[in-house]
Amino acid sequence: MYKKSIIASLMALAATSSFAATSCGKVEIADMNWNSASLMANIDKFILTNGYGCDAELIPGDTMPTSTSMAEKGQPDIAPELWTNAVEALINRGVEDGTLSVAGKSLSDGGEEGFWVPKYMVDENPELATISGIKKYAKDFPSSEDPSVSAFYGCPAGWACQITGGNLFKAMNLEEAGFELIDPGSSAGLSGSLSRAYEREESWFGYYWAPTAILGKYDMVKVDFESGVDAEHYKGCISEESCMDPQVTMFPPSPVYTVTTANFKKSNPEAYQYTTQRSLTNDQMNMLLAWMEDNQADGQYAAENFMFTYPEIWSKWVNKDVKAKIDNALDSL
């Protein structure tokens, strides 16, 4: 019994390593510190390892440092979920210089940003669904540290949305309405403040984005700015720190791309082909994130679960040969 199993595992080991040797080589994938990106990264790792024989490795990352490093140093090879608004200039320059390649949309709908209030508040007072209602009832959102002002939870320091959110805060004259822009310091701080308020059915008003587990889990209403989307102005002014005269506009959908280094594209055309195909809708992602949250899964566990449960989704991203190899790997998992 022992012997058999050891021999079997040895053989399996030999099999995988010979795969790696034949084609793809070493691939570094940026594992961003939020769940959807981490899930994407782990899906990529699984497929690239088992389907394309890559020696895939996850590298911790974050939007700004990862994209800079990819453009300047050619490392890591793949950023599976890059919110390019934050680093648009950098990516454009990278593409022009021939160091980066935008492979495809990793979230086909794009990311959704906005200012949100809990649904139970809107149920009680429908006017809170619009920005004018929020300003009118500013007193309903007292800051926990200083109840004389109202709290608006902004975007964590250093994120691109700190600039856009800050400009919109100005454009909507929220300060005159009595709001204070609170910097939550980190995404953990922001989501912590939201879930604390939601669990206790307290007031909360702030920036958030989808797809996220938080928005999958908590019933939140996106506040209507009553302005429509002015993509031009958004791009030209709202997303610039130097925006002198910000005007109100809803957030346009945020493009979320899979970005790779040009080097990776060149040396691994097959694997690159896969990265152009790999894409999820927001509904799919929200569902996956909610599953992750409920099951307290990490990216790897969630990716494995995804591979098992949704072959109809991922089989569209790869050709038959690769699918067979992946099925094989799934069976031996």
Binding site: M64, G158, I182, G189
Partner: peptide, 20 residues
């Protein structure tokens, strides 16, 4: 501490870390 919204010198540091 600034990562959970404490104002002070930590916030600009945090901001500069993420924005370089």
């Amino acid at each position: 501490a600034s990562m959970i919204g404490v104002k002070g010198l930590g916030q600009p540091v945090l901001k500069s870390i993420t924005n370089q």
